[in-house]
Design a protein around this nucleic acid. Structure first.
Length: 263
DNA sequence: ATGTCCACTAGGAGTGGA
């Protein structure tokens, strides 16, 4: 099963680009973030044409998450309990068939803006709520996956400029300890599992030619349970799809893709 | 070089968020 996470930065603006990617990469399951569209306006027809069913948790203007799947998909829940006022940021579904299924959650975690902003302590609270929620169903022997845009740079290696940004937004110990506490529930960062020392990024600012200057951050993750790690065949950050394609503008995030063996 | 892009409201450009 080929699974992926991708912050698309506006589903409607990106729809033709997403179509190119799906046709080229042929993923089975995709967690999408930053849809910026309501469920009513979600373009199910486009995805159905390509063989995908979508379960969605959207809202007007901001946030919004969805799971696309061309294998059987069953919606489980939407929204992080107690945090629904902070935007449509979580959707969970079971994907695949018996014996090959994954408990699949995709997340658009709060940005926090900067460490002086009111959103920063709120971001930390959101992560505390996420840990408490995820603790309820993560089991080593089950295939559980949390993926998405975490808006945290977990270690210095994951930043293009840790020296300058250490202690600022995405790079604080307060955020990093939250990230570790999620991992410590029994999850692995699948990219790091196979690439322990490689510096690679999943997001580059649109401004200032950041992509071409290799000024990025790794903030998009596939986090898998022990059972997922046992099934893991390959992981890739699909940076080719951070580039313009046929005159179409890319998201500021690249997809992250993993291939899993059958259970 | 905070240099771009998205969605919204408004009314065909400006604002807020990332």
């Amino acid at each position: 099963m080929k699974i992926a996470t991708w912050n698309v930065n506006g589903l409607r603006a990106r729809i033709d680009y997403i179509r190119l990617w799906l046709e080229d990469r042929q993923p089975d399951v995709v967690g999408l973030q930053e849809l910026k569209v309501t469920d009513e306006l979600f373009p199910h027809d486009v995805f159905e044409e390509l063989g995908y069913k979508a379960v969605t948790h959207g809202q007007k203007s901001w946030n919004g998450v969805a799971v696309l799947s061309r294998v059987p998909v069953e919606w489980i829940e939407s929204g992080l309990p107690g945090q629904s006022e902070y935007g449509a940021r979580l959707i969970r579904a079971r994907v695949g068939t018996d014996g090959d299924s994954v408990d699949f959650t995709t997340l658009y975690c709060p940005n926090g803006k900067n460490t002086d902003h009111d959103d920063f302590p709120r971001k930390l609270e959101w992560f505390d709520a996420l840990r408490e929620w995820a603790a309820g169903f993560i089991r080593a022997e089950e295939s559980v996956l949390l993926c998405g845009d975490f808006n945290i740079v977990p270690t210095g290696l994951d930043s293009w400029n840790e020296e300058e940004f250490h202690g600022s937004i995405f790079h604080t110990e307060d955020e990093r300890s939250r990230m570790r506490s999620i991992i410590e529930l029994g999850l692995s960062d699948l990219y790091r599992e196979l690439q322990p020392r490689e510096q690679a990024f999943s997001w580059w600012d649109y401004r200032g030619g950041a992509f071409h200057r290799k000024r990025g951050l790794r903030i998009d993750f596939l986090l898998g349970s022990k059972r997922i790690v046992e099934r893991l065949k390959s992981v890739e950050i699909d940076r080719d799809f951070r580039k313009k394609k046929d005159g179409l503008t890319a998201s500021d995030h690249a997809p992250v893709i993993a291939v899993l063996d059958e259970a």
